[in-house]
């Protein structure tokens, strides 16, 4: 086994666009679930809208890249309204079911042949990079250090993504230390009590859904920036991976989602390299390399179960502050 290559590949996941994208989405989910108690199982839908909003505005409507990002965010705001209006007044599990269904609707609509002219159906969209790359302030060439050596475009995507992530984290921190955050956390604990104190619970939940949804859309944009938008990415598994990340890091924390995303992708990157390598060098008998590669997803499921049962507050969460309200 080539340990150097494996470790180098693993290290590159630290600041990969996927890691940044997942961190952004997980941060959005922290606003939804960690602070607001909203069971959003449709994060994949928000991300898909961000990614497609970006790609379609550029390819079909010829908008500049930054306007594409705005369109993606706007689409997620509309999506939040569509989800929120019927369900935010209902019990928490309704939101769960409706969001997961709505995310599937979004994915199916991007996959269908019907809108092929705009979405390119199952094959997805690409070649929308011109504008973003033209705005690249970094000089041509390949530079960096060790496993983190990228070309100018690679750096531009990463730095831009990290910039978005820092802004998002700062926003979450500002919001959650404020009286607004206090109301939101109160709603997570017991919305009837907060209502009895004269707060417009529905408006707060809607605001939280929108803010988290925008972060999700930005995650989708960052995911789309380096390569292409393919509908088969935005399946329910994506949502569940984001949940795993959130709960791993700590749901009601600002840095938990980011830490969770880094750990998730570094471990996944490591396993995706090391397991097939072990299988092909005979260390994992009775297992093909494909099976060995599948193994890591089994671990994700197992990890999610174990975290929720034994450490629901995540890595960074307060021990006393269990994130799960006993409603």
């Amino acid at each position: 086994m080539d340990w150097e290559a494996i470790l180098s590949n693993t290290a590159s996941w630290l600041i990969s666009p996927e890691t940044i994208a997942y961190a952004l989405a997980a941060l959005g989910l922290a606003v939804h679930f960690g602070y607001g108690g909203l069971l959003n199982f449709g994060m994949a839908g928000f991300m898909a809208l961000g990614a497609y909003g970006y790609a379609i505005s550029i390819l079909t409507f010829g908008l500049p890249w930054w306007a594409g990002i705005l369109v993606g965010c706007l689409a997620s705001v509309v999506f939040a309204f569509i989800l929120g209006i019927p369900t935010l007044r209902l019990r928490a599990d309704y939101l769960a079911i409706v969001t997961i269904a709505a995310a599937e609707i979004v994915r199916l609509l991007f996959t269908t042949q019907v809108f092929d002219a705009v979405t390119n159906s199952a094959d997805g969209l690409g070649n929308y990079h011109e504008g973003f790359r033209a705005a690249n302030p970094f000089p041509e060439g390949t530079y960096g250090f060790g496993p983190w050596t990228y070309n100018a475009n690679g750096w531009w995507v990463r730095i831009f993504g990290i910039g978005l992530l820092i802004i998002a984290a700062l926003l979450v921190w500002l919001l959650m230390r404020s009286p607004w955050g206090r109301v939101l956390k109160g709603i997570r604990e017991d919305e009837d009590a907060v209502r009895a104190l004269g707060k417009n619970v529905f408006a707060y939940k809607m605001q939280a859904l929108i803010i988290g949804g925008i972060f999700g859309a930005l995650g989708g944009v960052v995911f789309a920036l380096p390569s292409a938008v393919v509908p088969s990415v935005y399946v329910t598994s994506l949502t569940f991976f984001i949940w795993t990340i959130l709960l791993l890091g700590g749901a009601a924390t600002v840095f938990g989602p980011i830490l969770g995303a880094v750990i998730f992708w570094v471990i996944m990157g490591f396993l995706s390299n090391v397991l097939p390598a072990m299988a092909s060098s005979g260390l994992l008998p009775f297992m093909s390399t494909t099976q060995a590669a599948t193994l890591r997803f089994i671990f994700v499921g197992l990890a999610l179960m174990l975290i929720v049962i034994f450490r629901p507050q995540g890595i960074l969460g307060n021990k006393k502050e269990l994130t799960f309200v006993k409603q």
Partner: peptide
């Protein structure tokens, strides 16, 4: 959800 992922894979 974790179980669902686990069994699926």
């Amino acid at each position: 959800i974790g179980l669902s992922l686990l069994i699926r894979y």
